[in-house]
């Protein structure tokens, strides 16, 4: 294994600085084990992919990283600190932002406000300053607005800043969601199926965009995708999940040739049965 640790071992040493270390993470829903003993570590500045067929537990992992679900067991370390059990907003402040599989914009607010909200915790002004319009209010508000507009410009949304979010076309909504996540100033960006519902041309553009924002904002990106095409194209390192467990990890080339992955993906009857039997 090139990363220096076994598939099912928790990371114990580092050979490249890691941003995210997940160890033996499990999640039970009632009696159902949605994720079991999930282990993964994401290197700094990497573009990391988490793939797997529908229902494999990818989004559950994301929800645990961002604190929306509390893990039943295991640990999640971000930049050397344990974040398991913290509230979602605290985790976001620590430097993790995300997008959602089915877009979750602030639908009835305009595009600019959607982005400006994400500045609230780290660049907002005090409550009294807001009510009285004194102190830092004017200066902070200008900084927030301008940063938000600059971010919108990166995603080609600068001319739609006063449009209501729900009226945007689908592709623009996806871009807005990424812009909003970036406004939280993350060091790690989690993208949940960013290419869902996109046609090949849009997907191509999205891939270029992901590369671009990683370089521009100096980010580590972890993305979920089940379109092989996207992941194989841009990810440097991939973890594959099926039935809540890691079944493979490696470079795109390793993954392509991994028999288990192919089985899980193509879902051949033989493959499924063998997986169940094991």
């Amino acid at each position: 294994m090139p990363d220096g640790h076994d598939l099912f071992m928790c990371p114990t040493h580092t050979d490249r600085e890691r941003t995210l270390d997940i160890c033996d993470l499990s999640k039970m829903f009632g009696g159902l084990r949605a994720v079991s003993d999930f282990t993964m570590s994401v290197p700094q500045d990497g573009l990391y992919g988490l793939i797997g067929p529908n229902g494999a537990g990818k989004t559950t992992v994301f929800n645990m990283i961002t604190g929306i679900y509390e893990p039943s067991d295991g640990s999640i370390q971000f930049a050397g600190k344990e974040i398991n059990g913290l509230s979602p907003h605290v985790i976001t402040l620590a430097g993790i932002a995300r997008t959602f599989q089915n877009i979750r914009l602030f639908q009835n607010l305009n595009v600019l406000d959607n982005v400006r909200i994400a500045f609230h915790q780290h660049a907002g002004h005090g409550l009294l300053e807001g009510i009285t319009r004194l102190g830092r209010f004017g200066q902070r508000e200008r900084v927030i607005t301008e940063s938000a507009q600059d971010l919108l410009a990166v995603f080609g949304l600068q001319d739609r800043q006063f449009e209501i979010a729900k009226n945007l076309p689908y592709g623009a909504q996806r871009r807005l969601e990424i812009a909003r996540a970036l406004a939280a100033e993350p060091r790690l960006l989690l993208l949940d199926e960013p290419a869902a519902g996109m046609n090949p041309a849009e997907t191509e553009e999205l891939m270029a965009m992901i590369h671009f924002i990683r370089d521009r904002f100096k980010l580590t990106i972890l993305l979920i995708e089940h379109q092989m095409r996207v992941v194989m194209g841009i990810c440097e390192w991939i973890t594959v999940m099926d039935f809540g467990q890691v079944i493979a990890r490696g470079t795109p080339r390793d993954i392509q040739n991994n028999e288990k992955v192919v089985e899980a993906y193509l879902g051949t009857q033989v493959g499924r049965e063998r997986l169940h039997a094991s």
């Binding site: 929306i68 979602p88 907003h89 976001t92 979750r104 909200i117 009510i131 508000e141």
Partner: peptide, 30 residues
């Protein structure tokens, strides 16, 4: 008071809770 609150950083956070609690949390809103 109300107008100033609504169009401030806190006011936007307040509105984001109405729109989508989970997204608001994920954007750092307590």
């Amino acid at each position: 008071l109300m107008r100033n609150l609504i169009y401030s950083s806190h006011g936007r956070a307040i509105k984001s809770v109405r729109e989508d609690e989970i997204a608001a949390q994920s954007m750092g809103v307590d």
